[in-house]
């Protein structure tokens, strides 16, 4: 289980994260939802140690090590001069848990070539490439920051497919997104954020069955208040 306890972060006088706590269970897709500036990306960066937090703890299966989590940001993290093949070799060199077979399989699925230069990839292909870098790490938890932002509907569908594929099996996923439509049916748990605080938290299935509300319905209720 990925546990987040009491995360706090201030930029100057502004509380960006205010005592944020939640958990992500294995084999579930948890979605962090909030308006722009709610603190979603800051939480993900804080979990991965990409920004220093003022206080709070992050435990992954009871330890503080981040080696069980793969992070997929919404921007390109490999040097621009590299080809896709160079980048996969780079990952293989640096990560003991890199799964070359998964990477090659996803490369074929997404129709990317090893010879493609990373900075020449379209936005959609860059998003797919980022997913490969994350999903090909044999890690039980995946954190994705806006994987569907700014890409066309067909690419969104291809990307949404990965969450129903065998590459998802057994993994706990924490994701931020504004594009609820494409993945609504896949979400297991939803956490609503506002001004750096968790303001609501639901089991998506329960919300649908007991209250007859979709995640989007609940989202409108929460943010239209």
């Amino acid at each position: 289980m990925l546990e987040v306890h009491g995360l706090k972060k201030r930029y100057g006088r502004k509380n960006v994260l205010d005592n944020v706590s939640f958990t992500v269970q294995p084999n579930t897709l948890t979605c962090l939802i909030g308006l722009n500036g709610a603190g979603k990306s800051t939480i993900l960066k804080g979990i991965m140690g990409l920004i220093p937090l003022d206080s709070g703890t992050v435990l992954i299966d009871g330890t503080g090590s981040k080696d069980a989590v793969a992070y997929i940001p919404d921007l390109q993290t490999m040097p621009g001069h590299m080809t896709v093949g160079d980048a996969l070799d780079y990952m293989n060199d640096h990560y003991a848990d890199w799964n070359g077979e998964t990477a090659e399989s996803l490369l074929r699925t997404f129709q990317l070539m090893r010879t493609d230069v990373i900075t020449d990839l379209s936005k959609g292909n860059q998003a797919k490439f980022n997913l490969i870098l994350g999903f090909a790490l044999d890690r039980p938890y995946l954190i994705l920051d806006e994987p569907l932002a700014g890409i066309d509907i067909f690419t969104k569908e291809q990307i949404a497919w990965i969450f129903t594929s065998e590459f998802m099996e057994g993994r706990g996923i924490l994701m931020t997104t504004h594009e609820i439509d494409e993945i609504e049916h896949l979400i297991d748990r939803v956490i609503f954020l506002q001004d750096g605080r968790v303001i609501d938290e639901h089991d998506a299935e329960e919300m649908r069955e007991l209250h007859g509300k979709s995640v989007q319905d609940r989202m409108r209720e929460v943010y239209a208040r």
Binding site: L75, Q76, P79, T119
Partner: peptide
């Protein structure tokens, strides 16, 4: 500030 944000990868490396 380059074409990509390589610092993310560097800091994420095990």
């Amino acid at each position: 500030f380059g074409k990509t944000n390589y610092i993310y990868r560097l800091l994420l490396l095990p």
